[in-house]
Every structure is written in C-alpha cells, then in structure tokens.
Amino acid sequence: MSDRILHITSKSIEQTHAIGTLIGRLACLGDVIALIGDLGSGKTTLTQGIAKGLAVPEEYYVTSPSFTLINEYPGRVPLYHFDAYRLTDFRDMEAMGYEEYFYGSGVVVIEWAEKVYELLPEPTLYLYIANLNNMRQIDISCQTEKILALERVLKEGGYI
C-alpha cells in the first residue's frame, strides 16, 4: 500500500478547491492531512475545499492560519487547520500542545507540514503540491486503504 502515489493535475483554483472537497468528504475523525508546497501553490485553497467536504458551514471563511497558527472550524467533525509556516521546527509545534488536536478529536490539516515531519503520525495523508506554470501537480500518498477510495473518487471526478 505504501508505494501507491496518485498523481493529479489541477488547472485552476476552482479545480483545486473541488479536489479538496472530494478529499474532505472522505476524511474521518482522527485523520491528519499534510500539505506540502510552495507559497501560492494552493494549500489554503485545498483546505477550503476540505472544509466544504467536511460540511463546515459556509458562513465560516477558512482563512490562512499562518499568523494565528491554528484555526478551528465546526463541521461534520471539527476541522483543525494548522500552519507551520512561521515555526522554526517541530519543537515549536510541541510547545503549542499539538497532541490535543492530533489524536482523535477532529480532522487535522497542516500547511507547511514538512517543517514538523517528525510529529506527523502514521498514517498521514500527504498532499505534495507543485507549481507548474498555471497548473498545479498534486501528488497524494497514504499508507492505508484510504488511498484506494481517494483514487476512485478522483477518477470519477475526472482528475486522474
């Protein structure tokens, strides 16, 4: 299972959002989703989509947590939106008391996850986003069966 990687392409912000929504619909309590990609690659847009998939009410704007470090939203299950952008390394994250969020109480999405790689639990759903001119290449990996379900919905959506 571990070597399975899905390669998908997004041609627009709207598509990135829609891909996020598909991922959010499949997300369950305790899931950790790691987003890895440069500035402007669409990490917050993906998270906005994931929030929609988790049925976070539309009156909640899912905004960047770069400065606030974590934003919480009520949904089908709570969404904890982390951002490690301003953190030096995983030790800063430990000091934030991240365990409260990571183990069981909601779905965790974490931007700039590569900075706190040491703390990501197994299994984590990894989304690597690369800027390709005006498109985004999104590579998805996960060490559980969830990758098969994701592959199916992304195929149905026409993204693979």
Binding site: L39, T44, T63, S66, F67
Partner: peptide, 18 residues
C-alpha cells in the same frame, strides 16, 4: 467585512519572503 483567505499583514510578510 473580512478577509476570505490571507490577512493583509500576512500578504506583506509572504511577499517579502518571495
């Protein structure tokens, strides 16, 4: 009114980073 994505201060900071 409010931001729907990034805060203004964050936009400055990230532009400087780029």
């Amino acid at each position: 009114g409010q931001t729907r994505d990034d805060a203004a201060g964050e936009a400055f900071d990230k532009a400087a980073k780029m």
